[in-house]
Amino acid sequence: MATITIREALNQAIREELARDERVFLMGEEVAAYNGAYKVTKGLLDEFGPKRVIDTPITELGFAGLGVGAAMVGLRPIVEFITFNFSILATDQIVNSAAKMLYMSGGQYNIPIVFRGPGGSAYQVSSQHSQAIESWFAYFPGLKVVMPSTPADAKGLLKSAIRDDDPVIFIEQERMYGNKGEVPDDPDFTIPLGVADIKREGTDVTIVARSLMVPIALKAADKLQEQGVSCEVIDPRTIRPLDIDTIIESVKKTNRVVLAEESHPVCGINAEISAAIMERAMDFLDAPVKRVSGIDVPMPYAKNLEDLVVPDVDRVIAAVREVAYLD
């Protein structure tokens, strides 16, 4: 076990998979000579050469589609978006091509591709560069959507994503690249997609959190423990397909649930989880499902305003206390 950052864990995952499978290649803006806008791909050009690690023009729709086409005929591309904000330009290829190809071809053309890059709230880059859009992708059958919250998850899940035969949207949290944690050294260490992780066990309230919200939920749980409230923190890790069973089991145990996410609340993943809980565990609820989401505004630049938008420990604690009828 080595203690490394999420950035390093992702780098290891890509390096190991490039070495493992000749069909895997990496492309995107600044991934090669520049070593990656966020340095996730550092050193890969030197190690694997320009055939495998490819700098693209700024042409998101183009290289996303090129990746899908290459995946149709036997390659396994890793396509990096400098941030997922730019993937919006490429959504036609992700949604209309990658997600649906297998289905509309009657099972003939699967698309083994990973679209990855940072997403979610960044620091003070205003509205176009700081947003969580995972629910867009999670909406579409045919895509898998993964959001790791720890270095070990980042590495294990990215390796699984690269080996997966379907298109995977892999969203790294921009603020979390420097977060450290222990990662197994085994080069065959993977974490299966679609399996939630109980980051902390508890009995009174379930907190479902992903990505940036996981460390915040865990901090909130620590503080709540001091107040006599035992929280269970569940990180779905893959939001499509969503491991709803693990969430439902937890809710049946705790009877109360807080759903934390940094994205906008409208039509978000929390709305989906909430509906699933209603459908499958309503009789176990002692309080309404409580959502803690990013405030429903475009991200502002000013620091004080930005801090108001992204949910923090206090907001999670307040939500937990509310569903536990403590205030």
Partner: peptide, 18 residues
């Protein structure tokens, strides 16, 4: 809806200001 001036968690409506 949350007033930007102060950071009172309870004042920020969790369902987006609706």
């Amino acid at each position: 809806a949350a007033q930007p001036a102060s950071r009172t968690p309870a004042a920020a409506p969790e369902t987006n200001g609706r």
